[in-house]
Amino acid sequence: MRTTIDSWLNETPEHQRLFAQEGLILEATEEVWAAMERTGKSKADLARLLNTSKANITQVLNGSRNLTLRTLADIAFALGQTVKLQITDTAEQANEWEDIRPLMRSVRRGMGTIQIAANQEWVTDPNPLRLIASR
């Protein structure tokens, strides 16, 4: 079924470009939020560590202020974290949000088992809900 998002994206390539742009910005800001949660730091703490205002941090975190790589590196450094960057083929991102939770629920109910492959590659077994290793 075609969704509202699909329809908008298929209007023009420009829409797809803007969508990709906003995706990266959101990904970066959500990662900063996640790092703040992990390290127990608030926006005020981060502002103090970076010697800037809390309003500036708010603008960076809601995507209204441009987040430069330099600022991102400074934020990560202040939180004791490291930024990992990776550029991948768009087609390979189809499985980006492969969610294992429904499978784990089935496993807990005794409907199958999971084995982890040495090369981290997962393939489905003809036996439903059973994952086996492949090489």
């Binding site: 998002i5 908008w8 803007l18 742009q21 939020w33």
Partner: peptide, 19 residues
């Protein structure tokens, strides 16, 4: 519009938006 759609997509995929 792109920003709103991205937020909605992220919400639907991960179940939350932190900001």
């Amino acid at each position: 519009v792109a920003q709103l759609l991205r937020l909605a997509k992220r919400l639907a995929d991960s179940g939350k938006l932190r900001s």
